[in-house]
Every structure is written in C-alpha cells, then in structure tokens.
Design a protein around this nucleic acid. Sequence first.
DNA 1: CGCCTTATTTCAAGATGTGATTTAACCCAG
DNA 2: CTGGGTTAAATCACATCTTGAAATAAGGCG
Lengths: 398, 398
Amino acid sequence: MRDLRTSNRARVLRRLYFDGQFSRHELAGATGLSQASVSNVVGELVEDQVVVEAGLVGSDGGRPRVLLRVNPDHACVVGVDVGETHVLVEVFDLTLRRLAMSTFQMDTIANRGEAVVERVLAGLDQCVEDSGVDPGRILGVGVGVPGLVERGSELLVHAQTVGWNGVPLERMLRAGTDLPLFIDNGANTLGQAEMWFGAGRGARNAVIALIGSGVGASVIADGVPYRGASGGAGEWGHTTLSLDGRPCRCGAHGCLEAYIGAKGVLGRHREAAGLPPEIVDEEVALRELLAEDSQAAREVLEETARYAGAGIGNLINLFNPERVIVGGWAGLILGEQLLPAIREVAAKHALHHPYQQAKISLCELGTESVAMGAATLPVAEFLGAGGVRSAALMRPTG
Amino acid sequence: MRDLRTSNRARVLRRLYFDGQFSRHELAGATGLSQASVSNVVGELVEDQVVVEAGLVGSDGGRPRVLLRVNPDHACVVGVDVGETHVLVEVFDLTLRRLAMSTFQMDTIANRGEAVVERVLAGLDQCVEDSGVDPGRILGVGVGVPGLVERGSELLVHAQTVGWNGVPLERMLRAGTDLPLFIDNGANTLGQAEMWFGAGRGARNAVIALIGSGVGASVIADGVPYRGASGGAGEWGHTTLSLDGRPCRCGAHGCLEAYIGAKGVLGRHREAAGLPPEIVDEEVALRELLAEDSQAAREVLEETARYAGAGIGNLINLFNPERVIVGGWAGLILGEQLLPAIREVAAKHALHHPYQQAKISLCELGTESVAMGAATLPVAEFLGAGGVRSAALMRPTG
DNA sequence: CGCCTTATTTCAAGATGTGATTTAACCCAG
DNA sequence: CTGGGTTAAATCACATCTTGAAATAAGGCG
C-alpha cells in the first residue's frame, strides 16, 4: 500500500515527461491504470503543480480533452561537468532546458580536487544567481566526473589519469552546499543524456561508445544504466583487441584504447611517418590527419577503422544492443569520416544476427551533454518518486 | 491493488525458496512487510499448500517460532537439455531435486528438429511415468537449446552449428503437449542453475563463461539474465581478441573461440606439432594434451591460458562482475589445471579496480545443469506469481 | 500454578484501485 | 437557440489490502 500511489504517480509522470502531452483519457490507456485512478493521480499532480493543463483539443462532437504536461517551472536542477581541464556548471528547468551556465578552464584538475570543488561551488552560486531561480526549487546537483565512482560506505572517485585516487568528492562538496548530490562517471551521464534526448531515444538496450583521449563506454541494459558490481562496468577502452599488441598507458598491451584513442591514433601516425613523439593539440592534430592526403595517413585511418569496427563488433556480440552510439570528441571527428568503414568492419566481426539488430550512429548532442546528463540524475530520482522530493532529494538541513 | 498481494506473496515465497526456513516473525523483518501482512500472506500460502510448517524452534521463555518452508511436493517441473548430440529430460520437485530422468544419444541433431521433438516428448512421458507424479502438478517444461532463441511473433531457435535456422520449436512441441513451455539458450539455463544452486549463489552480477567445442557466456546483470535486444547477448566466443588472427568457423578472424574452444586448442596443438588435422574424440584428446609432457603441449596450454585470461579480462572490464564462473566441458577440463595461470593473465589485462571485485572460479554443478537450469524457468515464473499458476503457467486447454 | 516472554492472530481503521454511474463540455442539426 | 448526441472527466460505492495496536497462544521458569 505504502508506495502504490507513488508508483502510479511515477508511471503517469514518466509518460508525460518522456512522451509529451496526453489527456487523462489517453493516459489511462498508456499506463494501464483505470480512468478513475488516473483522475485521482493527475488531480494530485496538478495540485502539487508538477503537472499543468496545456490547453484543450476539440473533438468531433464530444467534450474536448484536456492535455496535460509536466510543468517545466515546477523545479530546476543543476548539472556539473568536471572534465580533465574544465569545470562546467549549468542550471536547467525540469524539462532540461538550460537557464544559465558557468564555465571555467583549468590547466589540469590533476591532484587539484580542492580547486575543483571550489570552482563547482562558485559556478553553482553564479548560475543560480544568473538564472534567478529560487534555490529552494533546486532538486539537486548532478555531477559527471572523469573516472570511476565507487559507492561504498563513502562515495569515492577514482580518476587514474588525473591522479584522483579515492577522492571523497561528495563529502568535499557537501561542506559547501546542502543540495542533494548525485555523482556519476561523466561517460555515464553523457550516455544518459543521449538516451533521454539524443541518439538513444526509444532504445532499451544501447551502448554509448566514447572515444576521446581515453576510450570508454556507457551501457544501458533494459532501460537502466548498467554499472556492474562496483560502478566499473563499461571499460571498453581496456579490453584486449590484439594480444601482445601496442602498449597502453594502463600497463597492459593490445588495449583498444592504444589504437583508437586520440593518442593512439596520432602515435601510430607519427610512428608510421617515422617522426618522434611530440606534444601537440590533439584535436588539431587529429583534424589534420583526417585532412592529410598521404598514403601513411590513409593507412593509419584505415587501421583505425579496423580496430574501432572490431571493438564495436565485440560490443555488439556481448551486449546485443539496439543502438551503438559513437561519441567523444575524437569519436565524433573520426566517426564523421570513418563510420561507413567502421560499420563494414563491425559487420565482419559481429555475428550476423546481433549485427542486424544494431544501428550504429553518432552522438547527437554536443559535448555539453555531460552536464545535461548529470542533471538527469536528480530528475530521474524525482520522476521515480512520483513527482515528490524523495528522501534522496531532501536537503539534509531543513 | 491489482497485484499487490501477488507481489507480497512473491516476496515471501522467494525468501523461503532461496534462503531456507524462516518463522513468520523473521519473514516480516526479512521482507519489510508488517507482521500482520506476513500472517495473512503465509496463511494463504499454507492453505494453498505451497508452504508448509516445518517444526518449532523453542526459545528462552517465549512462544516457540514456527518455521516455514516451501513444500517441495506442491508441484514439479520438467527440465530438458537439447544438446548437439543428445536429448536429456528430467523431472524435478519444486525445490529442484531430481525425481526421474531419461536420456537419449543421437549422432547429431543437425537438421533433425522433428526427431528431437519426438525424443523430448517421449522422454517427457517416460519421466512422468517413472517419477509417478500427477501430470496435473507439472508447472511446466523448460528447454535449453544449443543456440539463439529469438522471441518474435513466434519463438524461433537459431542454432547455426547444427543447421537450425529458425526452427519453431515451441510450436512443434506444442503439438505434442499442453504443458507450459519455456525455451532458452542452454548456456543461459546452465548459468541460471549456477546462479541458483552453484558458484553464483548470492551474486547479483556474474558472468558464466562457457568453453566447449564452442565458446559463449551467460550474463547476469543485477540479478536477472541479460539477453540484449533479441536474445543474442553474451556471444563471447566471437569477440575479437587478436585482430587478423586465426580463422574462426564464424567466418571472421581472431575470435576467442578459435583459440580456446576445444577445436581451437587441439588445432593449435596439431599445428604446433606439425600434424595434419584429424577427427578425434575431442574430450579424450584434450585430456591427453593436458597430460602430455612436451614442450609443444606446454606452449599450447600456456597460450590457451593467455587467451582465456585476456578474454576473461575483457569480460571483467566490460561487465564488472562479482563472479566469473568458468564452465563448459572443455572449460572444466582446462580450468582445473590452468585456472591459476588464467587468473594471473586476467589480472594483467583487466583494470585493477574491477579485477579486485571479481572472483574467478569454476562451475560447481555438472553438465546436467543445463536441464536443471531449464527447469528453473517455470519455477521462476511460479515464484514471481506468488505461488500461483500464472497465465504463463496455465495449460492452454482446461 | 501464575507470571513472564515471545510469536502469531485478530481487529479496526485508513488508504487505494476499479467498474459503473453521473456530470461536464462541446458539436451540430433542426 | 435548443435539445440530442458524443466524448472526457469526476464521483460514488465497493472490494481489497496494509498496518499498528490489541488480543491471544504457547511455552519457560520460579
């Protein structure tokens, strides 16, 4: 009994959130509830101002239907993208339209957890002020971080590449804000954004394959993010694709990342061209490589497509997804040109049947989607609680 | 309201099924229900004879607790293992103790769907007679098949290796029995058996890695089998581990199966020894290889451990499981000797954090567990329905 | 034998879903 | 402009279910 009403509210609310406007009558059909129950539930939701009426739709001779929709201004959420060299804070309304943003570049966040926290809190204050929202309406703050999030007795962030080794980010942020905090791997939050609003809409099983300097993946299984036993699932970049192959920064050999990560692609090119390693702007270098009209460049790119295609083939064989969504800054640059070749290779390496099911495409949202995806976390909590601030959304003090 | 009682019955029943005996009092704590509700629910379950009282436990001065347990004789289930060269039918009581079995060897089931159906039905009749159970008490028949099960408008079995290309097994069996049918990939049913009664007990995230002539995996994510978009998830054997490596029977190159499948191991050995390919009893040959005291054999086995370890490392990186359970007839033979080496290699290829979470061990149940796991399917349905024959368990006719 | 402790059942109240019925709102023909 | 027709939404009465509290059951122990 306790949470029957809650779950029915959640059903109705989710439908309205993701599938737009419905009348009470249509909601009954869509949610499987009786019309009487929908009436009751909607009545509560309207009274709570979570849902508002959005006009009438006349019909051929009957009482017009009253369309309902989620009230975007009922509450707002904050999304934070902690990248390896920047901190981005954004405020959204309930439907994730951006109200304000604040961005800050850093040389590196390596070993600078305190500075990151400071920037996040400053950006939060700034954004709230700029957007003019009532702080009491903020459902929570979602934070995407560039590493593994371990949920033990305390939430710890492990981001090897920037020297974060068990950073208690939640506790550190908690010292500066009372808002509910939701912290997850940035790859997962980006994936979540694509699932809600991008290339993953409508899919229940998808893999978002992210290629940047590093390589990772976000897995959605049966509609929910799959995190594994300790939040470490989806480490696609360090799967072995070529036993005893190129050395990888993780210490192993033959990892996918060593071939298709931006550093791997550029490194292979410089080796092929007989040049010494050099520190460059990777994004510029990658674009130059794609534009370069040389045998060496073509070969490196062809090989990149072969590795990426085989890697995606592996994802298809193991996860049998409806969608494989390629993203990450390097993934988008490479994908634009190489996607047809990648599809071809994946088709060769994946089994016929699962390959048929999988649509391989590029991410549709920009790189800001890490913050937007982070902001989905408090929204998801809110929807699941049927449009009420659940325990997880209660501010610890008052 | 509709299924609140059902879900509470299911909660109580599952607890009793998987965690043994409880008093009503303890059940209240364990399920989160109030004592009054537990009393009501248990009252119904006892009246339905799904649950029986199992004696008293005295205490220091209070009313003794009445222990409850699932009634093994309330119902029974049938499990069928359709292998590439045999059909095994077993009858179990509700707690999956075997009551009877019937096995039948075939040269091959290739292109012999009709013959398989005939043997399954004959075995079913035989077993029911041998066990003396009332056919009306049979909850259903679970069938594990050696291939992919596609659940579309009609259930179709695709088993490439035996030439089954869209065999409508459910319809074919339906012609010979009214019992509810549950058909799944044999790898999945075996995995299910290990999760309920074997090496996977208590884990919520696990991968069962099966090595036989072919290689596959069964993935359990958050306690439920993960099947992907169309039942084709877990095709571990055809993930690429060595780009452009050994040719695989699937047509691609460098598949894991080409290295660690029984055929792959034996083939590599014969090549290393400079012998021509030969048709042999693979199991015997594999045992001989393990016993052989030669440089060539040692190298082949060492290489096998390296491939298997890297393959398992990939599973760990992608799924972050609590357990990796190695099985399959060849997996058990190889694993017994190579498991330490495999663990070592996996540790090198997997990232540190997810590797730490994963316990790598061997299957605990014998090869009959395919049939037993198949039998868990109707039981799971029964438990989920709160100990009632749900729609899925209703016999189509009367 | 009666008090104490603990387990289970009973009871009354409150919450909720649902089918049937009623009311609301609008179209349109006459 | 009025009344019938039509569809949407609200209301009602009832059945179901959970639950905290109180009552009852069952045994130990002084």
